[in-house]
Structures are given as C-alpha cells and as structure tokens.
Simulated assay, not measured.
Amino acid sequence: MEQSAPRPAGLGPAGLGGASVAERGTRARVARLILEHGPVTAAALGERLGLTPAAVRRHLDALLADGMIEPRRAVRMGQRGRGRPAKQFGITDAGRSAFEHTYDDLATSALRFLASRAGEQAVAEFARDQVADLERRYRPVVDGAPADQRVRVLAEALSADGYAASASRAQVGGEQLCQHHCPVAHVAAEFPQLCEAETEAFARLLDTPVQRLATIAHGDGVCTTHVSPKRLNETDEENKESGGTSV
C-alpha cells in the first residue's frame, strides 16, 4: 500500500533555525526533488518548482549547510559544448535518511521474528512474494515496449513508485538501471533477500541476465543494476525455426 512520505526530520524547525513554515515546506520539496530525480541543477529545480534563481539558491544554501545535499560534478554526455557544465546537487546519506519511512524498525523486527521461527528461507519467500506484486504490475508495461526501450520503461515504472530510477548505456556494453531511492534500504541492510528478490524480478521482466553492482542498503549512493544485452540464444531459436544452424 502506498504511503505518504513523512516530513524529513532534518528539515524540521530545529534544522532550519528561524525559517517560516512556508520556507520549510518549500525546502522539503527541493530536497525531495533532488532525492527523486538524482543530481539536478539549480535551474532545473527552479523550473519544476516555479522559483526564482535567488529563491532556489537560498534553499540550496540552507540544505548544503545542514548537510542534506552536496554539490556534484556534472557528467557531460555526447558532444562537448562551450563553457563549464552547470553545477548539480545530489542528496547525501543524511538527506536520504531524513526521508526513510518510520516503519523500518517494525519491519526489521517482524522479519527477525520470521527468521527465528521459520528460518532464513521463509524470509526469502516473503521477499519474493512482496516483489511478485511489483512484477505483475510492471509486466504489461515492459512487455508492451520495444526491446531497446524496456530498461527505460522499467525505470519510469519504478520512478512512479518512488524509486527515482533512471536508465543509461553501460560503458562495458548493455545498460544500467539506477535507483536513487530505496524505501526499504535500512531493512535490506540486514535482510539482503529483499534486494535479491528484486534483482531476480528485473531479470524476468527484461528477459535477460542482470547483475546488481551496488546497493543503497550496503552503503552505496545508488542501487545500480547492470542489464546484459539480449541473450544470444534468441538467434539460435530463429535459426532453428528457419532450418538454419548457428555457429
């Protein structure tokens, strides 16, 4: 069941000094946009929120001072342009923690109880059952997309569920699926079965091998999954149907 996001603890009155209620609300929106969309520029934030450059800068300075965000070096894609790339801002571990659900302790305790009574395998089955609903919902969308767009479509579906995901070409071939937010990161740190079940679901949805390279649960800034190019056995099947042979 979808839960409304709690107000970040670090963005409360104590963290903002004499900021007004309106300023606290806007600052929380700025921080959440940075969390959900990955590193972004001040100009992009101003456009999304309808704020002036001066207002955006004021909120960014406050979030930087509180350790909620940090400047990131922009990676220029494609043809190089003139001048330096615009500065981007990304969420810090402290900023991400401020958005964590308040049910982490309860969920962790429940899984500990399940593991102690029924064993680790029961936790793995529980994780697969939880991911099964996500897989059922995403299946029609992913299957309906062209083969070369399925990772991007999966990223969009994950983003709609609050995972702030993105897709890009991998330097070593294939693609990378990145999730900038994980609502169960603290629980998954103790129970990696949650990450494993999700990775298995990605492989089934994309019908190709995938490999989890990094996870927020293990202290990385982003959950990164490498998606291999479409399996070569499809060529074998086509050759068999046409009466040919593969080499």
Rank of each mutant, 00 (worst) to 15 (best):
D220F: 12
V227P: 03
F191K: 01
V172A: 10
G144T: 05
L205V: 09
F99G: 10
Y138C: 12
V172W: 03
G219I: 11
R32P: 00
L194H: 01
A55Q: 10
V227F: 05
C182M: 03
D104L: 07
F113M: 14
S159G: 02
C195V: 06
R82N: 14
L213Y: 04
A132P: 07
T245S: 14
L106Y: 13
E200T: 05
R152V: 00
T215N: 02
P53Q: 15
L11P: 03
K230C: 12
E234N: 09
G38V: 05
D143V: 02
L213F: 01
A160E: 12
A31W: 06
S4D: 13
L63R: 02
R128I: 03
A165I: 00
G243E: 06
T26A: 11
R27C: 11
N233P: 05
V153S: 00
E190H: 15
A118H: 14
G81F: 12
S159I: 00
G144W: 00
G90M: 09
T108W: 05
G83Q: 10
Q149F: 02
L106W: 13
E135D: 11
D93T: 14
D104T: 10
R76L: 13
C223Q: 03
F202A: 03
Q176T: 05
G81K: 15
L194G: 06
D161F: 00
I69Y: 01
L49V: 04
A165T: 00
R80N: 12
G18T: 09
V247R: 06
T199A: 15
T225S: 11
P229S: 11
Q3I: 15
A22L: 12
N239S: 09
Q130D: 12
G81L: 15
R139T: 11
A44P: 00
A118E: 14
A44I: 01
S116W: 02
A145R: 04
R7Q: 14
R32I: 00
V131E: 11
R117C: 07
R96N: 15
E175A: 02
T102W: 05
D93S: 14
Y163H: 06
A145I: 09
P209I: 05
V151F: 01
V131R: 08
G15Q: 08
P6H: 04
D133N: 07
T199G: 07
R48E: 08
T235C: 09
P192T: 01
N233Q: 13
A74V: 04
G12L: 13
A124R: 10
A155W: 01
R80K: 12
E36Q: 12
H59W: 04
G17M: 02
A170V: 09
V131T: 14
G81Y: 13
S242K: 13
S20R: 08
V142H: 04
